[in-house]
């Protein structure tokens, strides 16, 4: 079983005006000029490479970190690399006001923990804060106090997350027919 409570240091994706950025699209996360890359270990160094002010994210990020984002995070293209680049860096979870529909599927299928949390941009979180998130209940805590509640993972999302990814989940439930 993978852990259902994750604790880690956060990065809040804010712009130069200090406000959390909405509509971060997949070209800002993983630019189309790198689409030919198929090796996941090569993807991390391009994460957020086209998001103004965040170009140095791959150097700053550490394994186990958590990302906080605004509305419609991962809008745009269907590229899996926009999810896998964060897995490549060891990012443990992404919490956003909301996600682009395809991005959400891609993240769930890759076994990256993501939570939708309307209101997360307004609770005063800052870069470097340590938070703990309960994937099953959606509870997000800082210094032991619950600060906001995200939508808990859906049953399919939790199943795939626990299996590791969609392929492992498929094997475990005998979805693929030989």
């Amino acid at each position: 079983m993978r852990e259902k409570i994750i604790e880690g240091r956060i990065w809040v994706l804010t712009g130069s005006d200090g406000r959390i950025i909405d509509d971060i699209d997949t070209d800002m996360i993983f630019h189309n000029k790198h689409l030919h890359i198929t090796d996941i270990s090569e993807m991390g160094k391009h994460a957020l490479g086209n998001l103004e002010g965040w170009e140095d994210f791959p150097e700053k990020a550490e394994k186990g970190d958590i990302i906080i984002a605004g509305k419609n995070f991962g809008a745009g293209s269907s590229r899996q690399q926009a999810v896998d680049c964060f897995i490549s860096l060891g990012i443990r979870a992404i919490i956003a006001e909301s996600f682009g529909a395809i991005y959400k599927r891609n993240a769930i299928n890759s076994g990256l923990a993501i939570l939708e949390c309307p209101g997360i941009s307004g609770v005063g979180l800052n870069n470097g804060d340590i938070i703990s998130i309960n994937l099953e209940t959606g509870s997000i805590k800082k210094d032991g106090e619950e600060i906001i509640k995200a939508r808990p993972m859906s049953s399919v999302q939790m199943d795939i997350y626990q299996a590791g990814n969609l392929f492992e989940y498929g094997k475990s439930m005998g979805q693929q027919q030989d």
Partner: peptide, 21 residues
Amino acid sequence: GQGMGDTDIAFAFKTGRTWFE
């Protein structure tokens, strides 16, 4: 029609089906 990432599509190639909310 639904656009998807390569993990999703590989699974669809293999099984001919997928999950949807």
